[in-house]
Amino acid sequence: MYSGRDMTELSMVSITDWKDEELGYFHQALQQIMPYLNSEGQTIHREIVEEIQNRGGTGQLQL
């Protein structure tokens, strides 16, 4: 179960400073509700996906 920082706190931190666990958790959560996200939520999800790719993909995350 995820017990890290919430989205409010993370929104004040550069996405490059997020932990792998945070990226993985919010990627999965936002992916599940993607059809219901507004443009801001979709942008946040896209930034998360890009950061995961920059770190070598989901297989490389230390969850």
Results as ranks from 00 to 15, higher is better:
19 K>N: 03
18 W>Y: 12
51 E>M: 08
53 Q>G: 05
13 V>N: 03
16 T>V: 08
47 E>Y: 09
30 L>W: 06
33 I>V: 15
46 R>N: 11
56 G>K: 04
14 S>L: 00
12 M>V: 14
59 G>C: 06
61 L>C: 01
29 A>E: 07
36 Y>G: 12
60 Q>W: 00
63 L>Q: 08
3 S>P: 02
24 G>P: 00
53 Q>N: 07
9 E>I: 15
61 L>G: 01
24 G>A: 01
35 P>T: 08
8 T>Y: 15
31 Q>K: 05
58 T>S: 05
49 V>R: 01
25 Y>R: 00
56 G>F: 03
54 N>M: 04
42 Q>A: 10
34 M>Q: 07
28 Q>M: 06
1 M>P: 13
35 P>V: 09
28 Q>P: 01
22 E>K: 02
62 Q>V: 06
47 E>R: 15
18 W>M: 14
61 L>I: 02
30 L>T: 11
62 Q>H: 00
55 R>A: 01
39 S>E: 07
41 G>A: 06
49 V>D: 09
55 R>F: 06
40 E>S: 04
60 Q>C: 05
27 H>R: 08
42 Q>E: 14
11 S>C: 13
61 L>A: 01
46 R>A: 13
14 S>A: 06
40 E>Y: 06
4 G>D: 12
44 I>A: 09
45 H>L: 07
24 G>N: 04
30 L>M: 15
59 G>L: 02
17 D>R: 10
23 L>N: 04
2 Y>S: 11
50 E>G: 10
28 Q>I: 07
27 H>N: 15
40 E>Q: 09
34 M>G: 12
14 S>Y: 01
17 D>W: 05
42 Q>C: 10
2 Y>K: 14
10 L>H: 14
29 A>M: 15
15 I>M: 02
22 E>S: 08
15 I>N: 03
28 Q>W: 04
19 K>R: 08
52 I>G: 10
6 D>W: 12
11 S>G: 13
62 Q>K: 03
13 V>S: 02
22 E>P: 11
26 F>W: 13
28 Q>E: 06
48 I>V: 08
56 G>E: 05
54 N>V: 02
32 Q>E: 08
24 G>R: 03
10 L>W: 12
63 L>C: 08
20 D>F: 03
7 M>N: 05
49 V>I: 11
42 Q>V: 09
2 Y>C: 13
23 L>M: 12
46 R>V: 15
36 Y>W: 14
53 Q>C: 07
42 Q>S: 13
53 Q>L: 07
38 N>G: 12
36 Y>R: 15
7 M>C: 02
26 F>Y: 15
52 I>R: 06
39 S>W: 03
